[in-house]
Simulated assay, not measured.
Amino acid sequence: MSLVPRQPQPLAVAAGSAEQVTEAWLANRRLSEHTREAYRRDVSGWLAWCAGRDLEPLHASFLDVNAYARGLEARELAPATVARKLSGLSSWYDFLLKLRAVDHNPVGGADRPYLSRDHSATVGLTPEEVDALLAAAAAETGPAALRHHTAVVLLADLGLRVGELVGLDVGDLGVERGHRSLRFIGKGGRPRRRALTPEAAATLDAYLDQRAAAEGTTVDRLDGPLLVTSGGARLDRHAIFKLVRRLARLAGIAHWAKLSPHSLRHSFATTARAEGVPLEDVQDAMGHADPRTTRRYDRDRHNLDRDPSYTLAAARVRRSGT
Rank of each mutant, 00 (worst) to 15 (best):
A145P: 00
Y68P: 01
A315Y: 06
H59M: 13
W256K: 07
P308L: 03
G231P: 10
P261M: 00
A139F: 01
E23Q: 10
R299A: 13
A67F: 04
K85I: 11
L204H: 03
P57N: 05
K242R: 13
K187Q: 01
A269L: 04
V170L: 04
L72N: 04
R30K: 11
H104V: 10
L227G: 01
D300P: 07
T141C: 07
L47V: 10
I253V: 03
H255M: 04
R306F: 14
A285S: 12
L168I: 02
P291M: 05
F241V: 06
R211N: 06
P10H: 06
H262K: 00
L173K: 01
R249F: 06
S17F: 06
F184S: 04
G252N: 00
A12I: 12
S32T: 15
N28P: 13
L168H: 03
A78L: 10
R75M: 13
R41M: 13
A51K: 09
Y39M: 02
L55K: 08
H302V: 10
G71L: 11
A314M: 07
A136N: 01
T217W: 12
R40E: 07
L55E: 11
A257E: 15
L3I: 15
L72Q: 05
R194D: 14
L97W: 09
H238K: 06
A274M: 08
Q20P: 10
G71E: 06
L89G: 04
H238T: 12
R249D: 07
F95V: 03
V166S: 00
T229D: 02
E129M: 03
E76D: 14
C50A: 09
F184N: 04
E140Y: 01
Y297L: 08
G232D: 05
A110P: 02
F95H: 04
C50I: 09
Y39N: 04
R237M: 07
R193T: 13
R84L: 03
E129L: 05
R53Y: 06
L47K: 03
A212C: 01
A151V: 00
V102N: 04
E19M: 08
Y310R: 15
R183Q: 12
S17V: 06
Q283A: 07
L97P: 09
T322F: 12
G171H: 08
A137H: 03
L26V: 04
Y207P: 00
E19L: 08
A214Y: 02
G163D: 10
Q283T: 09
F62L: 13
D220H: 15
R319S: 13
S61C: 12
S17E: 14
D94T: 12
A272Y: 07
W25C: 02
L208R: 06
V13D: 13
R192M: 15
P225W: 01
L3F: 08
S44A: 15
G188T: 01
A213S: 12
D223E: 12
A135G: 03
R6I: 07
T35Y: 02
G16K: 02
A202S: 08
H119M: 08
A83Q: 11
A51E: 12
E176Y: 11
V21W: 09
V317I: 15
I185E: 11
A272D: 11
K98D: 14
A15Q: 12
A132C: 06
A315Q: 14
R306M: 12
S61Y: 09
A18F: 14
A239K: 04
R194K: 10
V162N: 01
D209Q: 14
D172I: 06
R301Q: 01
R192N: 11
L146W: 08
Y310F: 11
